[in-house]
C-alpha cells in the first residue's frame, strides 16, 4: 500500500505539471494487405515537462516508431501527437520543419553531426538555420556543462565518439527546445562515455528543467531516468517510476518470457 502511494504521488504531481508532449490513440501501420504490420496500436502517452522518460521494449516493440512519430519525423496512420499545444499530425512539411527546428531537439545513435562544420557550428546549427542569435550566457553554460570548451573549433572527425555525442547533446539543448528526443544516444559508445552522456542528460533535466524522452534497450541507461515506459507489440504494457537497472532488467525479462510463452 505504501509502495503504491509512493508511486502515485509523483504521478499526481506530473499530472499537475503541463505535459510537454501528448500522444493520443497513436497508430502506425506499415504496408497493407498481407504484408500489413501494425507497429503502434492505439498508444496513449503523456510526457510530462521537466521529466526524463525512457521508452523500452524488445526489438520490434515499436519504441523507435513511437519516438519518430512523436518527434514529427514520421507520420501517424491515426491518432494525435501534441507537442505543447500543437497537434503535429495536422502540420504540413514546412510547419513541421519549423517545429523541429524551434521546439524539438534530437540526439541520434550515430551520425549526429555535419562533418564539414566545427563542433561550435554544429551546436549552433538549429539556431543559425533559423537565423537566430544564440543566447551567449546559455551557450557558455551548455558548453561548460558538456565540458567541450577546448574542443569547439574541432571538426567531428577530430572528436572521439563520446565527445561527438556530447556535442550532439549540446546542440539539442542550445535552442532550449520544449522536448528532446534521444534515440539510443549511448548505443555506439563504450560504457564510460555512455555514462558521461547519461549523466549529462540527467543534469540537464535536474538543473535546467529540460524534458527528455530517450529510446533505449539498455537497463543501465534506463536507470538514469525518472520514468520508464515499456512497449510490446505496439502497445504500452507497463511503466515504472524511479527505475533501477535491476528492476528494469527484471521487467524486461518478464515481457520476453510472456511474449515467448504467447
Amino acid at each position: 500500500m505504501s509502495s503504491s502511494a509512493s508511486l502515485a504521488a509523483p504521478t499526481q504531481r506530473s499530472e499537475q505539471r503541463q505535459a510537454a508532449a501528448r500522444v493520443v490513440g497513436l497508430t502506425k501501420v506499415y504496408g497493407c494487405g498481407d504484408t500489413e504490420v501494425v507497429a503502434l496500436d492505439h498508444v496513449d502517452l503523456d510526457l510530462a515537462a521537466g521529466e526524463f522518460t525512457a521508452i523500452m521494449g524488445p526489438s520490434g516493440s515499436g519504441k523507435s516508431t513511437l519516438m519518430h512519430c512523436a518527434a514529427g519525423l514520421d507520420s501517424a496512420s491515426a491518432g494525435e501527437v501534441h507537442i505543447g499545444d500543437v497537434d503535429i499530425t495536422r502540420l504540413k512539411d514546412k510547419a513541421l520543419t519549423a517545429l523541429r527546428r524551434d521546439r524539438v531537439g534530437f540526439i541520434f545513435q550515430a551520425f549526429n553531426l555535419i562533418p564539414t562544420l566545427t563542433a561550435e557550428e554544429n551546436i549552433l546549427l538549429p539556431l543559425s538555420i533559423a537565423g537566430r542569435k544564440p543566447d551567449q550566457a546559455w551557450f557558455d553554460l551548455v558548453v561548460e556543462t558538456v565540458g567541450l570548451r577546448d574542443r569547439l573549433g574541432h571538426r567531428p572527425s577530430e572528436l572521439s565518439g563520446g565527445q561527438q555525442q556530447r556535442v550532439a547533446c549540446a546542440r539539442a539543448l542550445v535552442s532550449r527546445p520544449e522536448i528532446i528526443f534521444a534515440d539510443e544516444p549511448t548505443g555506439n559508445l563504450d560504457s564510460a562515455s555512455g555514462t558521461e552522456v547519461l549523466a549529462f542528460l540527467r543534469r540537464s533535466v535536474d538543473e535546467f528543467g529540460q524534458t527528455i524522452v530517450m529510446v533505449t534497450h539498455d537497463p543501465v541507461a534506463a536507470s538514469h531516468t525518472d520514468r520508464v515506459v515499456f512497449l510490446a507489440d505496439g502497445r504500452v504494457v507497463d511503466e515504472m517510476r524511479a527505475p533501477t537497472a535491476e528492476r528494469v532488467l527484471e521487467a524486461m525479462l518478464g515481457f520476453e518470457r510472456r511474449t515467448a510463452g504467447a
Partner: peptide, 16 residues
C-alpha cells in the same frame, strides 16, 4: 543522404 536527413531533422527547410 544521411547528412541531409540529419539537417532536415534539426530543422533545415526544403527551400534551405
Amino acid at each position: 543522404t544521411r547528412e541531409i536527413g540529419l539537417l532536415r531533422a534539426v530543422g533545415l527547410s526544403r527551400r534551405q
